[in-house]
């Protein structure tokens, strides 16, 4: 069954069209990654799906309902981790969770929520003393309180240390395994590749690639890279390559076969292909290809800028 249905969604902010006709579907129990550089329209899309903003055009259905017009029907069954949202700094972690339990039907016990988010040891700490990653985990704890059927995670692991990130991945996978539908955005492409079974890449308000993660990547082929041996010209090689800084890169639908061809060719000539590396296409390859400015935008981007950039668009 389809949990999330987006059809020709459009949304403008003050004359700027942030989302320009986006369509995708997320099946029940699926983890779906919405990717794109800053300002691509991801957060706007999530805000419409979560019912904070009305769709400007097209239609959106979450669990069969319009999330804006029928918020009361959708909210009890969704959990939302906003990209940025405040807490009451004076409350402790436990008090925050308790307050939110009061806003939730049949909430998880406080300790269970804290354990899921890996915050058990911090329950007595005031929220303002938490690190950025810990606040993110508290965010997750609150989003999970109502045992939602659909979970929206806008950059869920930003600011987390590697252990916390890995723990969060496990939680997300376990939730999906028990039937929770998860839509996430992330700037960590490895995270998306590991977690999501489907994805869409957005650029300038449109979807530029989408589909099953494994199929999409398999279709992109892979690459073989090696140091170009001295005195070898690229046109002598049996396969076309591009060379940058002495590193030859050969893109091929079947990178294993390409590597064999290249190694056989080298062996016949008594050459070594130093630094040989064979790999299937990664999401990052695909992403950089489709959103060419992404590398510069990805750099050392402080988390705060993400929102203002997105808002400014």
């Amino acid at each position: 069954m389809t949990a999330i249905e987006v059809n020709g969604l459009r949304k403008s902010h003050q004359g700027f069209e942030a989302v320009r006709g986006v369509s995708f579907e997320v099946a029940e129990g699926e983890i779906f990654a919405l990717l794109g550089r800053n300002g691509a329209g991801k957060t706007t899309t999530i805000e419409v799906l979560a019912g904070f903003q009305r769709a400007g055009g097209g239609s959106v259905r979450v669990l069969g309902h319009d999330p804006y017009a029928e918020r009361a029907a959708v909210r009890p069954r969704t959990g939302i981790m906003l990209q940025e949202a405040g807490f009451f700094p004076e409350l402790t972690v436990a008090q925050t969770v308790d307050a939110w339990r009061g806003f939730t039907d049949a909430p998880r016990p406080r300790d269970e929520a804290l354990e899921l988010a890996g915050l058990t040891g911090r329950s007595g700490t005031r929220v303002r003393q938490l690190s950025g990653g810990e606040k993110r985990r508290l965010d997750l704890a609150l989003a999970l309180l109502g045992r939602p059927d659909v979970l929206f995670l806008d950059e869920p692991t930003t600011g987390m240390d590697p252990q916390a990130r890995a723990a969060t991945w496990t939680v997300i996978r376990d939730l999906a395994a028990t039937g929770t539908t998860i839509l996430l955005t992330t700037h960590y492409l490895e995270e998306a590749q590991r977690l999501a079974s489907s994805m869409a890449i957005m650029d300038e308000g449109r979807i530029v690639a989408s589909g099953g993660m494994a199929e999409t990547l398999a279709a992109r082929g892979g690459r073989v890279a090696f140091r170009l041996p001295a005195h070898v010209r690229t046109d002598e090689l049996p396969l076309p390559v591009t060379v940058a800084d002495g590193l030859a890169v050969c893109r091929a639908p079947d990178p294993d076969l390409a590597a064999q061809t290249l190694l056989t060719w080298a062996a016949e000539r008594g050459l070594r292909l130093e630094g040989l590396e064979v790999r299937a296409a990664t999401l990052e390859d695909l992403f950089l290809e489709l959103a060419p400015d992404a590398r510069s935008a990805e750099g050392a981007r402080p988390a705060e800028n993400a929102r203002s950039t997105e808002d400014a668009r």
């Binding site: 979560a50 909210r75 806003f103 609150l142």
Partner: peptide, 17 residues
């Protein structure tokens, strides 16, 4: 202050009307 710190928005992400 709760509006500007996006606490109201967080409250709206719950079942509360």
């Amino acid at each position: 202050s709760r509006r500007d710190q996006l606490v109201l928005k967080r409250l709206r992400s719950t079942r509360l009307t």
